[in-house]
Nucleic acid binder design. Structure first.
Lengths: 146, 146
DNA sequence: TTAAATTTAATTGTGTACAATTATTACAGT
DNA sequence: ACTGTAATAATTGTACACAATTAAATTTAA
């Protein structure tokens, strides 16, 4: 009989590890498609929010993406330099920085629409598994997801 | 009727995004416990492999963790400096660098065993959900997981 | 056997993540 | 109005990730 005292420390008994590994592996699969539209994965999900919301504060964006200003400030500056979005302070409350999508950012959506189509070919999950995974992940995140 | 052409680009229809967000959120939950044993999350999973295998090459370690030498080389150097492991070239094949756990690395396991115990209290998943999640993640990773 | 191809780590450069701190603005209570 | 508190971004410093390249050792094949 093996000593079971340390079983909880075995990598194959972790739940966070495959989550972490999966996340990175899938993001790597995105890379060739995202390269074609000159976006990193983080920039891509930022654009997703902007395509939907058009305009929001850094705080709100961070809440959508689970990222803080330490990550977003330099990211948004780069995206502004690329012409995808504009950054300006709110007039009602100067503490808020408002991020707004530009025409160029809007038009990128046309090219980007191919990305999820290409990525769909890469998955090996059944639709029910994907749905189950989705539900569990959003339960962990503490949001409904819809 | 909404234009459905772009639905696949909505953040709430992504599977990778909650994976990425979950992974980071859980790793953040590890932080206070890992701080107590002076390990980062990446160092922690590296130690997990070493507690199990005792000795292996950078290549093998990278295969376990889905990481390459670009990430591992500096990580292992820091861990060597902390005295948790030793690095030496293989004598049979000088291309291989062999990583071996030290006594100090072994003894850290005693303290580390509390980490999964503490983390278990943080989860809001049912055991069946955790098992289902585990299965799906390892299906994506293309390994059995056991 | 020796030149070409392969394998393995290390290095280089870019891009996040994130904790902690700082600076600015707004607000609350007096 | 004035003081302390809170909220929001930006900054700073550390630690990954990873693509691409380099360098060294080994293997393969002509």
């Amino acid at each position: 009989m093996d000593n079971e005292k340390y079983d909880a420390l075995k990598i194959e008994n972790q739940l966070c590890f495959p989550l972490y590994a999966c996340s990175r592996e899938i993001i790597k699969q995105y890379k060739p498609f995202l390269d074609e539209i000159d976006l990193t994965y983080t920039q891509y999900i930022t654009m997703m929010v902007l395509w939907e919301k058009k305009s929001l504060t850094v705080k709100e964006l961070g809440s959508c993406l689970f990222l803080d200003s330490g990550t977003l400030t330099p990211l948004l500056k780069k995206m502004e330099a690329k012409g995808l979005l504009a950054r300006r302070r709110s007039e009602e409350d100067e503490r808020n920085l408002i991020v707004t999508i530009t025409e160029k950012g809007e038009s990128l959506k046309e090219k980007a629409v191919k990305v999820p189509a290409e990525m769909a070919k890469c998955t090996n999950l059944e639709p029910e598994e994907a749905m189950e995974l989705y539900k569990i992940l959003y339960k962990i995140l503490g949001r409904s997801g819809k």
